[in-house]
């Protein structure tokens, strides 16, 4: 059994927002929320993408039509073949968690959807803060309303829906009133740094899903290194404790060449 990509056919494409597409495919794998696949478009490129749906029958990824690779993926219809290998990395853990707050920024809600599913199955009391630049970019809003009702909190940068402002402000408000066992988050790293800082201050455990440019996906090449951690294998989900000791989290990332750059200079990797 090798780790080479397996060619699978896309069975369904779901348009989520104007710029987010979910691709379903049959790929039998034991996957945990927060894990990712290396997704190969033959002849084009391969990227690490978190699973946004996990079931026995099928898996799905959600892609933001942003870069040249993802724009291509967004043009795919049912029947298109893609290569997938994985799942890789450590997912989110719900061990000992009875009460959770989940914070998603932009397309960060993609890897958090299977976590919501898991929380509901396990009877974990779950609140979800969904943030985006504007109302049009709120990914998985409908699904989250169906699943969580009043426990969904929406924020937009421009106030076009929900509370105007950032997810971190809503998190701080919620944490003023309650104490969850764990805060889960995925989104722009600058936002997650804010989430971590708030959780550390309140002494609440957290788990955050990170991204760095990856090559092998299985902990050999070292490309996705952050401090002495390989995001692909030691992560992509890290505990707040680990990240609070990191010199690079929220500050630095690396280019394809391996050259260090500040996150601000770089923008953000995340393509969903």
């Amino acid at each position: 059994m090798s780790e080479l990509p397996q060619i699978v056919k896309i069975t369904k494409v779901q348009r989520e927002t104007g710029e987010h597409h979910t691709l379903f495919f049959n790929f039998k794998a034991e996957a945990a929320p927060g894990q990712f696949l290396m997704v190969w478009i033959p002849g084009v490129d391969e990227k690490p993408i978190s699973l946004s749906k996990i079931s026995k029958e099928e898996l799905a990824i959600t892609v933001q039509c942003k870069g040249s690779w993802s724009k291509r993926v967004c043009g795919f219809e049912s029947g298109t073949k893609i290569g997938v290998r994985g799942p890789y990395g450590n997912g989110f853990s719900t061990e000992g968690v009875k009460k959770a707050i989940i914070v998603a920024g932009g397309c960060g809600s993609a890897p958090l959807m299977p976590l919501v599913e898991k929380c509901l199955v396990e009877g974990i009391e779950t609140k979800f803060i969904l943030g985006a630049q504007n109302a049009k970019k709120l990914l998985f809003k409908k699904e989250l309303i169906e699943k969580l009702g009043d426990n969904l909190y929406i924020t937009t940068d421009d106030g076009s829906e929900g509370t105007k402002g950032f997810t971190t402000q809503t998190l701080e408000e919620l944490l003023g009133k309650e104490k969850p066992d764990c805060v889960y988050s995925c989104g722009p790293e600058i936002m997650m740094k804010g989430v971590l800082d708030i959780c550390q201050k309140k002494k609440i455990k957290s788990q955050l899903s990170l991204e760095r440019y990856m090559r092998c996906g299985f902990g050999v090449c070292g490309q996705c290194v952050m401090d002495d951690l390989m995001v692909c294998k030691d992560g992509p989900v890290f505990s707040g404790k680990t990240l609070s000791e990191s010199a690079e989290f929220g500050k630095l990332t690396r280019l394809k060449s391996g050259k260090e750059v500040s996150l601000k200079e770089f923008g953000d990797w995340r393509q969903c």
Binding site: M1, S2, E3, L4, P5, M38, W40, D45, E46, K47, M214, R215, C216, F218, V220, C221, Q223, L255, K256, S257, G258, K259, E260
Partner: peptide, 20 residues
């Protein structure tokens, strides 16, 4: 990518000497 793969009896790579 793909730059590093595992096949049945080992790895194969063409990372292309990235360097800062």
């Amino acid at each position: 990518n793909p730059t590093v793969l595992e096949w049945e009896h080992g790895l194969i790579n063409a990372v292309g000497l990235p360097t800062a």
